[in-house]
């Protein structure tokens, strides 16, 4: 099998404007552009930081579990789209991601089912209008963001992985 064939990845279509061009550009496009790689490396921690801020401050400022998880998943999507298979493979073991997602789901289920009892107990030990407040919505935000982030990462990574294997 030709090794240069699947090294190009998803970005080939951005420059391959025509089908007939594919044979010509196959050997040129071994790598994504250096600018895109560098900017992805620089932006990645900041997007993760914003997602964590949206999750942890969800009970004080606009945001919450779902936007936070989606933001974290966007960072990983950038990573998967820009880097090649050899640079990314092994970093996302999907079975482990499903394990994390299941554990977070069980935690969220426990929180929401025993909310009526937990709420009044936790609030007594919390300081209002700080990060350590919000009763169990704080924990629900954290676990909800983990569930959404891992779910979207699994979806996108399994779509991309099949693309790499061809």
């Amino acid at each position: 099998m030709d090794t240069t064939k699947h090294q190009g990845g998803i970005h080939q279509i951005i420059i391959n404007s025509k089908k007939t061009n594919k044979a010509k550009t196959k050997n040129r496009l071994d790598n994504m552009d250096l600018i895109i790689k560098t900017i992805t490396r620089v932006m990645f921690p900041f997007i993760i930081l914003f997602g964590a801020y949206t999750a942890l401050h969800g009970h004080l400022t606009p945001g919450g579990g779902f936007p936070a998880g989606a933001t974290i998943a966007t960072a990983f999507t950038l990573l998967v789209l820009t880097f090649r298979e050899s640079e990314v493979e092994g970093r996302f073991p999907e079975i482990k991601l499903i394990d994390i997602k299941s554990i977070a789901s069980i935690a969220l289920l426990a929180i929401i089912l025993f909310e009526f009892a937990l709420r009044d107990i936790i609030i007594q030990y919390q300081i209002p209008m700080t990060v350590w407040s919000g009763g169990d919505t704080l924990f629900a935000n954290i676990f909800g963001s983990i569930i959404v982030a891992t779910g979207i990462i699994i979806i996108i990574y399994s779509l991309i992985k099949e693309e790499w294997k061809q």
């Binding site: 009970h59 919450g64 407040s133 009763g135 919505t137």
Partner: peptide, 24 residues
Amino acid sequence: KTGSANAVNAIVWDFRAYDTLGEE
């Protein structure tokens, strides 16, 4: 009741938490 200053978040994750559980 919930201790969260963001009323939207309080509704989504506390008052209507069962709906959110179904969503997940």
